[in-house]
């Protein structure tokens, strides 16, 4: 793990069970605070990371105890980068229906990826669809709004 100057880096494998993200999320939130990220960005990154890990555990690995979720986090004062990979068969993110269509507004699920995309600067899946890379660049406007 690095210092504040060098940024923070953490890599781990999580079991495929609900709630497995708790400790890494606490650590990630601590590091965002340490690196001075504003509250609105912390909320956004928290939401995106939590959705990505939950998707990997529940939809990717289907809570299979023999599979793990590989998580890599990097936090600096200007950039957050999170990779989440599961051991499932993958999926096509383009196949997810647009949850904001009038006829789908009252469908209870299918909003996680859309929120991740909205809240992060960059979101990319590998071709298999079982690994997601997300980045958030520090937004000077959010800093100004927080002051």
């Amino acid at each position: 793990m690095g210092t504040k100057t060098n940024g923070w880096h953490k890599e781990l494998h999580l079991p495929s069970e609900r709630g497995a993200s708790r400790h890494i999320m606490e650590e990630l939130l601590d590091q965002l605070a340490t690196h001075g990220w504003p509250q609105s960005d912390v909320f956004a990154i928290h939401l995106a990371a939590e959705e990505a890990i939950t998707n990997a555990i529940v939809h990717g690995n289907k809570l299979d105890e023999s599979k793990t979720v590989h998580v890599v986090c990097r936090v600096s004062s200007q950039m957050v980068r999170i990779e989440v990979a599961d051991q499932g068969p993958g999926f096509d993110p383009k196949s997810i229906p647009d949850c904001t269509l009038e006829e789908r507004l009252d469908v209870p699920n299918g909003r996680g990826v859309m929120l991740m995309r909205s809240f992060m600067t960059r979101l990319e899946y590998n071709t298999t669809g079982n690994r997601v890379l997300m980045e958030k660049q520090r937004d000077p406007a959010a800093d100004a709004a927080a002051e």
Binding site: F43, H46, L47, E50, E51, T54, D106, V107, P108, N109, R111, G112, L115
Partner: peptide, 16 residues
């Protein structure tokens, strides 16, 4: 302070 997309789904179900 925070809610997930799964929580949104539950709220939609309750509203229905």
């Amino acid at each position: 302070e925070y809610l997930s997309s799964a929580a949104l789904g539950k709220l939609i179900t309750l509203d229905r």
